[in-house]
Simulated scan of single mutants.
Amino acid sequence: MKHKKPSLIAALLVLAGSARAHIVLEQPSAEAGSAYKAVFKVGHGCEGSATRHITVRLPEGFRGAKPVPKPGWTLSLRMAPLAQPYESHGRRIEQDLAEVTWTANSEADQLQDAWYDEFQLRGTLPEQPGELWFKLRQVCAQGETDWAEIPAAGASSKGLKAPAARLNVTARTAEAGHAH
C-alpha cells in the first residue's frame, strides 16, 4: 500500500494545480434567452505576479451586456457592429458591447497572486441552446495569459493550456418572462 500513496498524492497535486489553472464562470450553465450574470472567478495571477488588467471578449449572441464596476479599477468598453442587428424596447440595435476591460488604478489595487476575486457583467443569452465561449486576457505585473483556447466541437477543454470560459446554454424549461 505504501507504494500507491505517493501516486495518489501526485495525482491530487496535479488535479489541484489544474483546478487553479483557469478563469472560470461561477455558473457554467443557464437557460437560452434568459438574463445571465457572468461571474468570472480569478484565482491566481501569472506565475506569482499580480493581475493588473482583465479583458473579457464577449461571444457573439450575448446581447446587451453591462459590466459591474469594481472599486480601484477603471472600466473600458469597446463596442462593435453586429452581424445580426436585433430589436430591444422598440429600438434597432446595430452595435453592442464586444469587450470589457478592468484595469487596476494603482499597484495597491492589483489582484495579488495569493488572492481571489471576481469580475462580473450581465447580459441576455441567445434563444438557441449551445455553447458560448468567453475569451479573457489576464495581464499581470509580469507576464500575461490569453485564456482563449476553444476545443473542437464536441471535444472537452481538458488538456488545453489556456481554455476560454465555457457557458453551456441549455434549452428553456418553461416560458420565461422578459428580464433585465
Rank of each mutant, 00 (worst) to 15 (best):
C46F: 09
F134Q: 00
R20M: 12
L8R: 10
H89S: 09
V39R: 10
K70L: 14
Q138H: 08
E131P: 00
A152G: 14
A153M: 11
E31C: 11
A179F: 12
L136W: 00
N105E: 02
L136H: 00
A19L: 06
G45D: 06
K37D: 14
L111W: 02
Y36R: 00
L12P: 00
R20L: 14
S157C: 03
D96W: 06
R91A: 08
K158M: 15
K70I: 09
Y116A: 12
F40R: 02
L111G: 01
R20N: 13
P126F: 15
V68R: 13
R52L: 13
R63A: 05
T124C: 06
Q112S: 03
P69A: 10
E144H: 12
E118Q: 08
W102I: 08
N168G: 06
R92H: 04
A141L: 04
L125Y: 08
P81F: 04
A35C: 09
L25D: 11
D113V: 05
L75F: 05
H89F: 07
E118P: 01
I23H: 01
S156G: 13
P59M: 08
G177D: 04
A98D: 03
E87N: 13
G48F: 00
Q128A: 11
E87C: 06
G130V: 02
T173A: 14
E99Y: 11
P28S: 04
P126E: 14
A65T: 03
G72V: 15
P85L: 12
R20G: 12
N105W: 00
S7N: 15
G159D: 10
G130I: 00
G45K: 05
T124M: 11
